[in-house]
Write a protein that binds this DNA or RNA. Structure first.
Lengths: 235, 235
DNA sequence: CGTAAAATTGACGCTAATCAAGGTCCGTGG
DNA sequence: CCACGGACCTTGATTAGCGTCAATTTTACG
């Protein structure tokens, strides 16, 4: 079971997240008041690709994985989200279905607004809409980068770049290096980079031999991030 | 030289474009009044990746190519735009630089708003902002699709899918099939699909032998689109 | 301790990237 | 009008990279 958060803590997290940029604590509180608290256990879904979009979320704790599925049934991972990140923001701002699925890869807490509720709030607090757009713009630019990566880089570079992005987003200092602080399988890395587990495994094994990384099942620690950067940027 | 359009014609085109959905002709006229007319010759740029974003455009005629460049200097084509499509909308809605370059591949006419002007208009006509967001959402979803394609499909399928997208967007009935109505080199197709001209050339040659397409320098006509669909969707 | 999921490793073959050479088309200037 | 140069396209040969299959090992957890 998840231990519920206190309202004050929630307020604290939300106030500092990008969606609330430029809003007073007062306004922020009012906006949160219209949200519902939301808990979701590991491996369950916030929503599925193609579902009618009714809600948007801000994650308070935990990690979520954004995925798409092809007709052939292959998964593609579009990205990960953590505390402060938004899920389904795009659908609060336009009339489309969820274009991807969001899955909790650890137990998550979040707050949640109904689409119509959020639309109303955005009319009252236009800054909210502006922030939402900014967040989408950010995502858009990131996705374009990754599109470019996958179109032009070799598998080894793509994996290196994926790890570096994850470490920037979820890195946690531990002795011996920086841990990517969430469950991350070879399969996940394969789905992020458009390859398969065999290649990923071989590549990670090689890096492990060179002591650039240390990895166990579902865990990766970067020890010599610099070496990976050199590889990733081909310097 | 480009033959300038009459105001009435411009109005006609703009009124029907996605940015003006749900706005009265009256409002639409007022919005257009705050724009500048803009002409740009083939091979020149609307803007470059990384430039400070000051303007957004709606294309009236012609075709524009959206590209990104990697550090290594390789180009990636993110997509094409034609009449009614917007350029740089994302930057009108958030505070970022242009994330890509937009190049006229034929002579283009467009209308153009300064970022601040457009922001002011969006405050007066909120529907304008909503439409802008919808357009970005559309693009976002499309980009995700293409990301998925490139991550999971073979080169031949990717080329087929690229051609089918282009034909849907710019197809023009001619005898013998449907022409992709703009200059389109092997190089362009390679940059759209994350491969090289040699592969594209071989693939198109093969399809030409099978009479699925007819192609000349910078031109492609789809004769048996159905066959390409079968290939593209692996049925 | 047993089981299932995750990860590893080797072998094999195909796809697609690369290199090299030559052909075709088009606009320009003599 | 013709010759030339440059951009575009084609094709073959070669090889590296990568996907796939099969078999085995490791790890987590009940």
């Amino acid at each position: 079971m998840i231990r519920p958060m206190e309202t004050a803590v929630i307020q604290e997290i939300i106030t500092r997240c990008a969606l609330m940029d430029g809003l007073t604590e007062e306004e922020c509180r009012a906006i949160v008041q219209h949200s519902r608290h939301y808990e979701i256990l590991q491996d369950r879904f916030f929503f599925h690709q193609g579902e009618d979009a009714t809600a948007m979320y801000i994650i308070l704790s935990g990690r979520a994985k954004l995925t798409q599925v092809t007709q052939a049934g292959e998964q593609v991972i579009v990205g990960y989200c953590g505390a402060g990140d938004g899920l389904g923001i795009i659908v609060a701002l336009s009339e489309i279905d969820y274009p991807l699925s969001a899955e909790a890869v650890t137990d998550c807490q979040a707050i949640c607004w109904q689409r119509d509720q959020m639309k109303a709030l955005m009319l009252t607090y236009p800054q909210l809409a502006i922030n939402g757009m900014g967040m989408i713009a950010q995502r858009f630019v990131k996705l374009q980068e990754r599109y470019r990566d996958i179109a032009t880089r070799r598998v080894e570079q793509r994996v290196a770049r994926a790890l570096l992005r994850l470490v920037r987003q979820f890195g946690k200092k531990v002795d011996g290096g920086v841990l990517i602080d969430m469950p991350l399988s070879r399969q996940d890395l394969a789905e992020m980079t458009g390859t398969n587990i065999y290649n990923v495994s071989r590549i990670l094994s090689k890096w492990e031999r060179e002591e650039w990384i240390a990895s166990q099942r579902q865990r990766v620690i970067l020890c010599k991030a610099h070496e990976l950067v050199v590889l990733a940027e081909d310097l």
